[in-house]
Write a protein that binds this DNA or RNA. Structure first.
Lengths: 114, 114
DNA sequence: TGTTTATATAAGTAAATTATTATATAGTTA
DNA sequence: TAACTATATAATAATTTACTTATATAAACA
């Protein structure tokens, strides 16, 4: 039996957090792949600080975690987070965003950076 | 096989819409009961125009519909909306908000109004 | 050790959001 | 038909958000 129930106040905060195209896509990607900041900068075509700020919000609620690997800081989903089951059900209803990483690979941007 | 997949842009807009405590609670209640505007005014303790504006946003995406019944306008969930399956999965993970209507009944406010 | 590189933080700004009060509208009822 | 009642809309103010540019930080590497 899957236990994903969550308080309504927390749910509203989470949905607001995910109710942004950039963050929602980030989380969908991170659900399958770890990514570094510069990859997201390429993918979303916004400034690096903007990406850092989105990631911070996701990190502040514990939905993602960071880890340094050499020169880069990689972000990944924190599947241990209390809210993850709730978020997971939501992500499962979204179309795969793998094509965004594929585009980076084609451009060579993924390699350059990470 | 449940088909609930939704474009990521639409999903972000929907989540933003539901990422508000008042609207999320409204939709959760409406998923089980029809309600009139004045009931929501009582429940949320905000002004009537504020409630009308929230309902309008929900109606604009087609998630709820309105129907006049005598003196009052009742809102209900539009289960035929394309986004409903997506929203339903989400609502199923939220705790029941029936106690809010029960409180109204105890106060007698539900009867006075509707 | 000094420079470079990746990322984070600070400060500022424009746009969006959510509330409020005032007013319009449209049924209901006396 | 006139007055009342429930709801919607308009106008506005306060707050929040999501960018931007400038700058700080900290690890990597020459």
């Amino acid at each position: 039996m899957l236990k994903t129930e969550i308080e309504i106040d927390s749910a509203a905060l989470l949905l607001k957090l995910l109710g942004d195209k950039t963050r929602l896509t980030m989380v969908k990607i991170l659900d399958n792949y770890d990514c570094c900041v510069c990859e997201f900068v390429e993918i979303f075509n916004v400034s690096q600080p903007s990406i850092s700020q989105h990631l911070r919000k996701l990190r502040d609620v514990g939905l993602v975690k960071e880890e340094r690997r050499g020169q880069w800081i990689f972000y990944s989903i924190n599947k241990r987070n209390d809210y993850y089951p709730f978020v997971e059900q939501l992500l499962n209803q979204l179309p795969d965003q793998d094509f965004r990483l594929k585009e980076l690979e084609e451009q060579g941007t993924r390699i350059t950076c990470c």
